[in-house]
Nucleic acid binder design. Structure first.
Lengths: 152, 152
DNA sequence: TACCATAATGAGAATGATTCTTAATCGTGT
DNA sequence: ACACGATTAAGAATCATTCTCATTATGGTA
């Protein structure tokens, strides 16, 4: 599979360079996997990447998270999940979360709904003097695969 | 503090009785704590409750979760959090999540916004043939306490 | 009230995802 | 080629959560 992630990679390389971090092959592989596959667990990332050690994967993801390159998601499955940061991809999105197999799928909502929600979230937070930063929405249910499986 | 949770307790007692589970004093204490304090971590629950063992707290919460009495939340803090289920309280709500101290505060949104969101979530899920069950919204930012603290 | 069967409790061991430690290796600039 | 700092990987350590099991409490029954 040939990915053209050169734009993405250049962006990240610059970002890491600014703070004296290296954008190594292993780190590129993690980013490639995430850009292909969407939110991934660590075992999934280990499959994609070629022979990276578990501890290195965790460490690199932590570094990349601190740099704002990736974001860690936490749901009910046994593993955490990682995705490219919105800051990097430029796509604000939310998640379909299957409560049968724990898979996570990206979705985008219509802009005018996002605006309405932002306004309402601000209003709702005001009562608690809570300063809103961002919002995460999980649409929970059953993915297409699991619907088929349970019918069989 | 005198709570009148008799209605709540009766409801739960009936629910548990139907499946041959006991609604013990320890379980009542957990429910009382949750009904007072909102989403709680396990250490918080251990403080509220009077001398319940850690392992018993976990086991009881799991049982109560299976009965649909409580729900487990998972965020980025070190501990999971537990709250009374919406099915039980009858209040659909979402969460303000402080990314500084990890506290979780309940909020309710306006009904017409909930309707708009539900429609949009259905629409967004359709593309992935995803069957929507419910939605969770986290409004992430800084709670009032942490805003004060950082100013000092 | 005494007895029995079943469920709940608590102490501690086990589990397992994630983080930490450390020695070896790699990259980059000189 | 050298030296320095960053990265890697293997395995140990951490720690929230789950499991085990012996003890205790509960509810039903006669």
């Amino acid at each position: 599979m040939n990915l053209d992630n050169s734009g993405l990679h250049n962006l990240i390389a610059t970002k890491l360079d600014e703070v004296g971090q290296m954008y190594t092959q292993k780190r590129r592989e993690l980013v490639d996997a995430l850009s292909q596959a969407g939110p991934c667990t660590l075992p999934e990332l280990l499959e994609f990447s070629d022979g990276i050690a578990q501890s290195s994967a965790y460490r690199n993801l932590t570094v990349l998270e601190e740099m704002g390159v990736v974001r860690r998601l936490v749901h009910h499955g046994e593993y955490g999940r990682w995705e490219l940061s919105e800051e990097l991809t430029g796509h604000h999105h939310h998640h379909l979360v299957c409560n049968s197999c724990d898979v996570v799928i990206d979705v985008e909502l219509q802009t005018h709904i996002e605006h309405l929600m932002d306004e309402e979230f601000e209003r709702a937070a005001k009562g608690s003097k809570f300063a809103v930063d961002r919002h995460n929405i999980d649409i929970v249910g059953t993915c297409a695969n699991c619907q088929e499986t349970t019918q069989a």
